[in-house]
Design a protein around this nucleic acid. Sequence first.
DNA 1: CCGATATTTCGAGAATCCTGGAAATAGTGC
DNA 2: GCACTATTTCCAGGATTCTCGAAATATCGG
Lengths: 106, 106
Amino acid sequence: MKLEQAAKQLEALGNPTRLNLYRTLVRAGEAGRPVGYLQETLGIAASTLSHHLHRLILTGLVTQERQATTLICRANYPVMSDLLGFLADECCADAACSPASGEVAA
Amino acid sequence: MKLEQAAKQLEALGNPTRLNLYRTLVRAGEAGRPVGYLQETLGIAASTLSHHLHRLILTGLVTQERQATTLICRANYPVMSDLLGFLADECCADAACSPASGEVAA
DNA sequence: CCGATATTTCGAGAATCCTGGAAATAGTGC
DNA sequence: GCACTATTTCCAGGATTCTCGAAATATCGG
C-alpha cells in the first residue's frame, strides 16, 4: 500500500527534532554530514540522535555511508520526491490540481 | 517557529487513518463530506473519527461548516500548499533545488 | 593486539497516541 | 418544549514514542 508508506514517511518527518535533522541534511547536500557533527549541531544525546536517524533511514529518507570511523548521513532526494509526488497526486492541494491522474470524483 | 508548525502538520498526516481521511476530503473537493459519511466510508468508530478530525482541524488542514444537523468537512488547500512550500523551500528534494532561498552551505 | 574515537544497542521512565463504548451536547423540526 | 439525529466529550486500556545514560560494538592507528 502506497498510502501506508507515505504515512510512515510523513510520520518520520512529523517530529520537530527529525524535521530539523532532515533539513540539516538537505542543506548539507551531496557532502552529507557525520553523525557526530549532527549530534553537536542539534544538541541532543547521541543515543537520541541514533534513534531518530534510524527512523529516517527505515523510511528511506536518509542514507548512510561509512568513512573510516565516522558515518556520513545524506538526505535521499528521490524518496522525498516520491513522497511529494504522492501528495500532489493523491492529496493534491494546489489550485492547479488537474484531473490528470485517477478519477476526480467517480 | 515555522518548523514546529510544519512538523505538527506532517505528524497529523503521518497516520494511515488520517492520511486516508484527508485524501477522501481532498477528492471530495469543494463539496466536502459530512462526518457521518466519512465514518461509514472509513469504517471506524464515530469517536475515533472525531478524534482524528480534531487533530486535522487543529493543524488547519481541515475545516468544518455546519449545515443543519450535519457538519461538512473540507480539505483546506492553502494550508497544504503552505506545507508543500515549506518542504520545497527548507527541505527541497528536487533536482531543481536552486540556491534561491537561504545560504546553501554557509 | 591495544588504546582511542565514533556510533549503536539496551534498559527504563514519562509522555503521548490510538481505539472504541458510553454518556453528554448541539441543532432541527414539529 | 420534546423527540430525534448528528457529533463530540469523557473514560480507559494497550501500544508506541521520546529521551537519556550506561554499556556494547565497530573501525582505525600504531
